[in-house]
């Protein structure tokens, strides 16, 4: 029953964890994966790796690699860490990223939205002044010495499709 150490936190990812284990198994191969409905007539991806397809109800699914490219949909900059593991990262930025795949489907406003930290090229927290809703990001993987890995995002070189917004604080 693997318990992984990540930044001093104990992540309990068990064989029975049919929702989240595959996400981190994928990360250890440096793949960002989401669940895909296996129903031929549906085939929808889902950002939250639940046990059934919210669109057709099927219990059949498989992990599917996605591009790891997306756009910041919302963000927060945490200046007061209540978890000891994050005290040396303060201030750190958490982003809600809308992946390029399946954006606006099946209904306007739907999307595959993934939570992660926004890191820089040194795999440290990105300067919070550089975050902004609408900015383009790409997945990166933060590896531990023990071979565990956690997906994060960093700002990409791509131009944003529309306006970028950041509250000026």
């Amino acid at each position: 029953m693997p318990i992984y150490d990540y930044r001093g936190m104990a992540l309990n990812i068990t064989e029975l964890d049919s929702e989240y284990k595959g996400y981190f198994d994928g990360a250890m191969k440096h793949k960002l994966v989401v669940k895909k409905c296996s129903e031929m007539t549906c085939g929808m991806l889902r950002g939250e790796p639940g046990a059934a397809c919210p669109w057709c109800g099927s219990l059949n699914w498989e992990w599917q690699e996605v591009s790891g490219k997306g756009t910041i949909y919302s963000y927060q900059v945490i200046t007061h860490a209540i978890m000891p593991a994050f005290r040396d990262w303060v201030p750190y930025t958490v982003v809600l990223v809308e992946l390029d795949e399946q954006s606006g489907e099946p209904n306007p406003g739907n999307g595959l939205r993934i939570t992660a930290n926004l890191l820089n090229d040194d795999m440290e927290p990105e300067d919070p002044e550089n975050v902004g809703i609408g900015k383009r990001v790409e997945v990166v993987f933060l590896d531990t010495d023990e071979g565990f890995s956690v997906p994060h995002f960093r700002l990409s070189d791509e131009e944003p499709a529309g306006e970028v917004w950041r509250y000026p604080v």
């Binding site: 936190m9 992540l11 309990n12 964890d17 989240y20 927060q76 945490i78 593991a85 939570t115 930290n117």
Partner: peptide, 22 residues
Amino acid sequence: AAAPIGGSDLLKRTYGVASAVQ
């Protein structure tokens, strides 16, 4: 804060999202 993190918390607390406002 030191308790093992599992289930849907894996996609929150792993990224430092724990409190209500976070």
